[in-house]
Computed example of a mutant assay.
Amino acid sequence: MVYKFGPWGIDASEVFVETSLSYAFVNYKPVVEGHVLVTSKRVAPRCVDLSAEEILDLWTLAHRVGPGLESLHSAESLTYVIQDGVYAGQTVPHVHVHIMPRKPNDFQPNDVIYDRIDREDHASRKVDAEKERKPRTAEDMAREATMLRKLFEL
């Protein structure tokens, strides 16, 4: 099965948990170890395009995924990010939540993490995060998703 993420397909091997309306998958270019995405199954460019039921389902799944990642990665906090529209830094026209396990001093200053997520703003802040964020192989992503699937099995 192929899931849609904006104009792209996400292979089922990269998905680790799903509901009837949402799914969570591993990130091709993670900012931190454990960085995943949660998105709606229906391609909707902006939050306003989702139904109330889809919004509730998306955040309920994010609420479930976050603590599992925090525990798995021995993190002490989580960063949840939604960029809602092009001018907010959204690069894929499909509502999605970034979930990133956070550890003490992983970014100095702390808000640099947002620069790493927001590609459009990198030129103005002189942060070349794309060179630092290495794409992963399909095999690496499938391996991570398999491990996460076990964590989120009921």
Rank of each mutant, 00 (worst) to 15 (best):
V48C: 10
L151G: 11
I55K: 08
D11E: 13
E120K: 14
M1D: 13
A24W: 03
A24R: 01
R143S: 01
R149D: 03
D84A: 03
V97A: 05
F107N: 01
F152D: 05
H94Q: 04
T19N: 00
V112A: 12
M100A: 10
V97E: 03
V15G: 01
E130C: 09
Y3N: 02
T91Q: 09
L78Y: 08
N110I: 13
I82D: 07
T91I: 12
L61K: 00
I117Y: 11
K134D: 06
A145G: 00
Q83G: 11
K126F: 12
D128P: 02
R133D: 08
F107V: 02
V81N: 00
L50M: 07
V31R: 00
V17M: 04
S40C: 08
Y23C: 05
P7L: 11
N110D: 15
E18F: 07
V97Y: 02
L72N: 08
R46V: 11
E76S: 15
I55E: 08
V15E: 05
R136A: 10
R42L: 11
R42Q: 13
H122P: 12
G34Y: 04
V31W: 00
V38T: 01
T60A: 15
G85Y: 02
K134A: 09
P7G: 09
C47Q: 12
L61Q: 06
D84N: 08
I82V: 13
D57Q: 01
A88Q: 10
P7W: 12
G89P: 02
I117D: 05
L154A: 15
S74K: 13
D128E: 15
A12K: 12
A44R: 03
I55L: 13
T39P: 06
H63F: 11
E53P: 09
C47E: 12
D106G: 06
A52F: 11
A142N: 00
Y114M: 10
